[in-house]
Design a protein around this nucleic acid. Structure first.
Lengths: 372, 372
DNA sequence: TTCTGGCCGGTAATCGCTTACTGATGTGAT
DNA sequence: ATCACATCAGTAAGCGATTACCGGCCAGAA
């Protein structure tokens, strides 16, 4: 049998020469300790300030730190301690302002808490979050924040739940941002906004302006965000005792192009009937729709009103400025970090869900329905 | 004297109980080794695949890894090895698409190289880069990429150079992105684009269209980017033997608001004389100017042509679409990472500077100068 | 058959810091 | 003067990998 099954060879000890000194070198606590004439423990205490050290000793250590230009080695610290002072955030695309603002909130809150951010993007790779979570787990990020995320089936949710358990066992937490909780027994924090409520509010506003036929564009059925928004849209009609014409609900991937093409097409072939308002599932879709309407010679808001969702800067910058549902994105990012910090330590607490408020911002793209 | 100066106490050894086992726990190479019946060295070799291991042994180790759900500890690995497989990037504001695209390039290239990104933003704090570089030095990022950066005086440049030396001594590199080199003796890589050339090209295009009075808006004199662009603007006039009216050069902080307000004001008080074209120092400024022109009843491009710089998505989305100078932002980000990787190891090589190409993108906001 | 290598795999030293214990010192109480 | 306490500082055991060195084994060469 070529399989080596024998007892391990008992090699005799041999003092090894220290790693050759040619490589990069920087001061260590050891050296600081020697320079200051104290022990490494004391240096560490001064550095972390979590243990009483006599003023005089402290001064000497600080002096030594300055002299040697000492900088702590975060890896060594993390290895010895239990935290890395690092939070990971996973988004779809960092260029998208929706994610950008959330990332900004995460960064700012993290900075205030003395942490650094590992920012990852999936760039459209389906299920890319899963691999990224694994990478962040290797890095032992103190928390992993997953923002949004598109299509999700049962298998995917199961895998995500597995990651949540794994992270939790490592002592850190998974925090979902802008998506609903996974399940009661999955240890993950959630920071979400009320999609149904927001969609209901803005739809109700349009209905209040006399609009009855509102074209809803965007969203895929597998996306929970979309399902929730459509639910709000429907509920607004229902609570006024009105019916919605199913032909007016036009799903599709969130994108400016979808808004443009779908609107142009419906205007051309009239297959969804008439409409006096357009509800873009997000601001990008709405802006695309505006362009199609304008090209068709329709005036906004005199002929057709348009509303969006999210309130990214673009909404306020287009002409006419877009009426939309404001989402406190940056605040959500901050909240996610705070939640992760709060959760930390609780080895297996219940899933904690926080909701941030949204509100309708009325700008110039909406007006009372034209008298027909 | 209360100062404790005596010889350190020689405490007797006392075997300490292992850290209490209640905390988070995850498999280690040790456990994998035991499970697979090999040594930790062998496990490490299988994991890193940089040393021959018999196929059978490898299989057993892989099996053990799977069974235990083992995940390597990046901190321990970084401490023992010499790299952290992490790159840091510092931008002004991650929401700004200019920085967003560069960050995207950095992320993608880093991902392809098996690295993770630590993304930091200064959010307007002057000199905030310096502190962030220090943080990234603590983290021992394999490279630190600093993008853009605004106002910079001699003292600031000196501090930045100090950081570059420190990083270099640590064995990693500072890479400047979208800004000129610091000095020949500063060990830092540079990835930049030709601002003077780009400004020259687009100005020349306008001059070729018959425009003679071009309003240049934006940029602060302390910003090297601005100085270079204005230089290109001037050179374009000069190379055609034309003179530029100094009143037409209107500095100010890059912002949409500046474009809007300055244009509106000059239109109102005519203090800079007439002009048939506006050159926004970046796309935001140009879009702001477009708005002011439109509100003043001027048509674009029939009455006034407008051009921008950078070619962020907004440029293609406004109506009329903006003629501008395209910058390969994402590619710059990738290039910065590649440069950092290439530089790594060279303990003190010469400053390496790479330039990425730019080109004028002609859209709908420009037309021949109106016949007066 | 004995020797020389090539393959593989084990041993244990390190990386740089945190922290549980322990000890020395000085102080106020008795 | 003696003893119980605070206070402050030192010792050294990890944390979880990587890797320089060393050595057993076996095949082909001499």
């Amino acid at each position: 049998m070529p399989t080596p099954q024998g007892k391990p060879a008992r090699a005799s000890r041999a003092p090894r020469t220290p790693r050759d000194g040619a490589g990069p070198k920087r001061a260590t606590v050891q050296e600081v300790a020697e320079t200051a004439g104290v022990s490494t423990a004391t240096v560490s205490r001064v550095l972390n300030g979590n243990y009483p050290v006599a003023a005089d000793t402290r001064r000497r250590v600080e002096q030594a730190v300055r002299t040697l230009g000492y900088v702590v080695n975060a890896q060594a610290r993390a290895l010895a301690g239990s935290r890395t002072r690092t939070v990971g955030i996973i988004v779809e695309d960092i260029v998208d302002p929706f994610f950008g603002f959330i990332a900004r909130g995460v960064q700012r809150q993290a900075a205030e808490d003395g942490k650094l951010c590992l920012v990852c993007s999936t760039y459209g790779v389906a299920g890319g979050e899963l691999d990224l979570i694994d990478s962040l787990r290797e890095q032992r990020a103190d928390a992993v924040i997953v923002v949004g995320g598109g299509v999700e089936d049962a298998a995917y949710r199961r895998k995500l739940a597995d990651r949540a358990h794994a992270l939790n066992q490592d002592g850190s937490w998974l925090v979902l941002c802008g998506r609903p909780p996974l399940a009661a027994d999955v240890p993950a924090g959630v920071v979400d906004y009320d999609n149904t409520g927001g969609a209901h509010a803005i739809t109700d506003y349009l209905l209040g302006q006399g609009h009855r036929r509102i074209l809803y564009i965007g969203g895929l059925d597998q996306m929970s965000v979309h399902r929730a928004r459509v639910a709000g849209f429907r509920r607004a009609y229902a609570s006024r005792g009105l019916e919605v014409d199913e032909r007016l609900i036009q799903p599709g991937p969130f994108s400016r192009r979808l808004g443009y093409e779908r609107t142009a097409q419906l205007l051309r072939d009239g297959s969804a009937g008439e409409f006096t308002a357009v509800f873009g599932a997000n601001d990008g879709v709405a802006v695309g729709a505006m362009q199609a309407l304008r090209e068709a010679g329709l005036r906004i808001p005199q002929d057709v009103s348009v509303v969006g969702y999210d309130d990214i800067p673009l909404a306020a910058e287009v002409t006419p400025a877009l009426t939309t549902v404001h989402l406190p994105l940056e605040q959500m990012g901050r909240e996610a970090v705070r939640l992760a910090v709060a959760l930390r330590g609780e080895s297996d607490g219940p899933t904690d869900t926080r909701h941030v408020g949204t509100h309708v911002v009325i700008r110039e793209s909406t007006a009372p329905a034209p008298v027909s």
